[in-house]
């Protein structure tokens, strides 16, 4: 049981971690570009913020329709694989990551971006300063998004299929064990999830303190 618990935990961390890195690779550059244009931010940010709380089952359903045999991406054979969960979680956390990074970057643009320009920075030097000074805030956004990916159930269940030893992650395992009446394992998995989320939250606080300093 402990072996399985360990394996599920490692898989959950790997899938959600990769999903967060993937989402970060497009969300942070997007947030930076949006933060540079007040017109773009006025149009896009209300939409992005509105979909931050999109139900995970809805994202799971849309992903399922895309990836199933008759779906437009069915040819990729990704359904019920860890890759599908990774992509699904990355899409799920994208609005959250864009929204939180945007707030950090928009504030940094106003202060550090303007400071860099007035001190005679090139566009590239100004961008570098804004990103470096925003780093603790951006790290906090990434950690928050990772936490959302780790704790979601809808996407992992609908497009992962909860296959033992392959796509089973902490949240799908808890759901399965509860449906079977195996509360002991479900509680242990729940405990692991809580410990991981608390660890994430504590690292978030440390990053915020760093930003204030």
């Amino acid at each position: 049981m402990i072996d399985e618990l360990f394996e599920i935990t490692i898989r959950s961390l790997a899938i959600s971690g990769t999903a967060t890195l993937l989402a970060g690779s497009w969300s942070i550059p997007s947030a930076y570009l949006i933060s540079r244009s007040s017109r773009l931010s006025k149009i896009l940010m209300p939409i992005v913020e509105a979909i931050v709380g999109l139900p995970t089952v809805l994202v799971g359903l849309l992903m399922y329709m895309l990836l199933c045999g008759r779906g437009p991406l069915g040819i990729l054979n990704l359904l019920y694989t860890p890759y599908a969960i990774t992509v699904g979680q990355a899409l799920l956390i994208t609005p959250l990551l864009i929204s939180t990074s945007f707030r950090v970057l928009a504030h940094a643009q106003e202060s550090y971006g303007e400071l860099a320009l007035t001190l005679g920075a090139t566009e590239r030097q100004a961008m570098q300063l804004v990103l470096v000074q925003s780093l603790p805030g951006l790290m906090a956004s990434i950690v928050m998004s990772f936490s959302r990916a780790l704790g979601e159930l809808g996407v992992a269940l609908m497009i992962g299929g909860n296959i033992r030893g392959y796509t089973r992650v902490i949240t799908t395992a808890i759901a399965l064990e509860v449906s079977r009446g195996e509360f002991e394992l479900a509680l242990m998995l729940g405990g692991v999830l809580v410990i991981l989320l608390v660890a994430v939250s504590m690292s978030l606080r440390t990053l915020r303190r760093l930003q204030i300093a």
């Binding site: 303007e114 400071l115 320009l117 007035t118 005679g120």
Partner: peptide, 23 residues
Amino acid sequence: GSDGKIDLRRKVIYVHEKPILLK
């Protein structure tokens, strides 16, 4: 153009009312 702008901005420096300092 951007080079001309940088050249002139380097002659004119603005200091904010609320100090913005780098970490």
